[in-house]
Amino acid sequence: MIAVIIPAFNEEANIAEVVKKINLFSQEKGLQLCPVVVNDGSSDATAEILEELDCVSLHLPINQGIGAAVQTGLLYALRSNCSHAVQVDGDGQHPIENILLMISAMKEQGADVVIGSRYIENKGFRSTFSRRVGIKYFEYLNYLLVGVRITDNTSGLRLFNQKAIAAIVEQYPDDYPEPEAIVLFKKAGLKFIEIPVVMHERTGGTSSITFSRSIYYMVKVTLALIFATIRKK
């Protein structure tokens, strides 16, 4: 069984469609996808909508940030003995069709983690200019720190096998987790690869990172990356 972890904070506009699409796709392709929605203390109707849907829903009573939400999903996947877990954003930016490519890439190359990247083939929605500059910055910083070139460090679309889940679940960062998780993969000796995917623009709601927060984001993640690199395991 593959747990599809969907962190959702005030996603009433998108969450039903995202879950239904996953269930439909799972049936069509005969995959064992199990949507695990982590409701991160939403104040809108997300919780009520989840009750009507065919999915596992984990309700965090207090908002904990996207990293902690994903970590909750990873814990669930580990405890219910799922063979794999894939992280998908709750706003419909990540088409679930990508998972077929990710699974076959994982098998072919014997990887523990597969990251979906928007910047290998540069197709589809690729975010705004300022955000792309930030993503380039993390590409070089992470290359400097761990010596692996990842083109899309902020991509939330990731497939983990059981070994990878067990290795990183304890240390998974609380907020802005994606770039830091790359360092964790490296430190845990996991094999991680990147494959090209196409992403959509958000279908509704607003992004969690506003421009005013991006400077703080850069400083915090830079420090977190440096500390994660020099930290002993």
Partner: peptide, 19 residues
């Protein structure tokens, strides 16, 4: 401050001020 962060006793958010 670095030692505290590395040991997990201080969160990175709060270390920004001290650094």
């Amino acid at each position: 401050v670095s030692r505290l962060v590395l040991k997990g006793k201080l969160r990175v958010e709060y270390s920004i001020f001290w650094i």
